[in-house]
Computed example of a mutant assay.
Amino acid sequence: MAKKALIAMSGGVDSSVAAYLMKEAGYDCIGVTMKLYDNEDIGMEREKTCCSLSDIEDARSVCVKLGIPYYVFNFKDDFKEKVIDNFISCYQKGMTPNPCIECNRHLKFEHLYKRAKALHCDVIVTGHYAKVVQDEQGYHLLKGVDETKDQSYVLYSLTEEQLAHTCFPLGDYTKAEIRKIAEEQGFFNAHKHDSQDICFIPDGDYMAFIEKTTGKKSEPGDFVNQEGEIVGQHKGYYGYTIGQRKGLGISAPKPYYVTEICPEENKVILGSNEDLFKTDLIADDFNWIEELAEDEVVKARIRYHQAEKEATAKKNPDGTVAIHFLEPQRAITKGQAVVLYRDKHVVGGGTIKNTNL
């Protein structure tokens, strides 16, 4: 009897080819789209977001072509609680979150995983560019072969059980190869644009989104330099992020950069580019996929698609992880993820909690 696979489909080329590859591998496939929020009915354009009504029809069309069943699961309440509300809360705390990580953690590999089990599926499948491999030590998460598309950074939260029941069929392909497969199979979305930015804020205006969602206007406050002197007024602290230079509206002999955000005092600290470099951070909510030897030097990434840098990691008694970079890193930002790598293997990752060590 063929194994069953639940394919998470967004209507894009990646998930469409993932479904095709799993069917070719002999799996009994079911295509599903997670309805996460309303978009076209509140004026969002299809080209700037995902999970739109048109995207649902695109995914359904691919499933019809492949001859597999297709369903839409309503996860809007869960998405609001786990992703949107968390996103707003993080910004209000002076952090810069990565909602894609939370969506993967709570929606794709928790709620959708539970649905897959209820449907007696053996694996859950997504169009991520990453790999899962098994050896005598267990299951491992690896980078995809296409370094320019690798998405292992946003998947670090996967547990051993989830990895054992997850498949990333695109991990051994480049993006160009995936589009070619889509062309050969006659998929009309072979050259569909990838979704960009945060899916529920397609215009990138985080402050306007937070104000609209909470019904509260942001309060202006002070820009303060490294000496504690007021040098200007900000429009609302959660409209800024660490390392930001543009949009400050301050004239000064040397460029100012955002170096710290202080929500309790409603102030934003400014400094020079040199003030942005630090060697240490504390991460919490850490998920270990592989064991790490004491004083082992690994590579660490503190931002999606940023170059990895050599670092060491130490587990603290309270469950947090102290990470020390061998060279200072620019703009380490609270709320972002730090992910550790050993060659192509993901060792683990967590959320940056503090950098003022």
Rank of each mutant, 00 (worst) to 15 (best):
N356Y: 09
I230H: 01
K117P: 04
D275K: 09
K334P: 12
L270R: 11
E264N: 10
K48I: 08
M207W: 06
H111K: 15
E40T: 10
A313G: 08
I323T: 02
S10N: 12
D275E: 04
D205N: 09
K143M: 05
P97Q: 01
V346C: 09
D318Q: 14
E274S: 12
G350V: 08
C103L: 02
F223Q: 00
I269H: 02
L142M: 02
D285G: 01
N86Q: 01
T320S: 11
A176W: 14
T96E: 14
C63W: 10
Y71M: 11
K278A: 09
T312F: 13
R301G: 11
F286L: 01
G350F: 06
F168V: 11
V125P: 11
A5G: 03
G215A: 13
K315F: 14
P253V: 13
K3A: 05
S157T: 13
V231Y: 02
H120D: 15
C199W: 06
A176T: 12
K108Y: 07
K48P: 07
L326F: 15
K65W: 08
G221V: 10
L155R: 04
E147Q: 15
A322D: 00
D78N: 15
C199D: 11
K192G: 06
E229L: 08
N98W: 00
I269W: 07
V298H: 08
E274G: 00
G243K: 10
G319R: 12
D280W: 11
Y70P: 03
L155F: 02
K108A: 00
E110Y: 01
S157Q: 02
V17E: 04
D41T: 15
E265F: 01
L326A: 03
Y91E: 03
I282T: 14
C29F: 05
Y91V: 04
I42A: 12
G204Q: 00
Q185L: 09
T333R: 01
G26C: 12
F187Y: 11
G26R: 13
I124T: 03
Y37E: 03
R60F: 08
Y156S: 08
K353V: 14
K65L: 04
Y257Q: 05
V298D: 07
E57W: 04
M34I: 05
S52Q: 08
P263D: 07
K65S: 12
A2R: 13
V62R: 05
F87E: 03
H345K: 14
F200W: 06
P255N: 06
V298R: 03
V339S: 06
I7M: 05
K254P: 07
L141Y: 13
T148H: 13
H128L: 04
D295W: 03
V64C: 12
F188K: 12
V145K: 01
V224E: 09
I230Y: 03
P220R: 04
Y27N: 07
D285I: 03
R105I: 01
G349S: 13
I68A: 00
F200S: 09
F209V: 03
H165N: 14
V298P: 00
D122S: 09
K254T: 07
K76D: 08
H191T: 12
K217R: 14
R301W: 09
K314L: 13
V346M: 08
N266Y: 06
Y71G: 02
D78F: 15
Y240V: 00
R301E: 15
C167A: 06
V258T: 10
K93V: 01
H128E: 02
F200N: 12
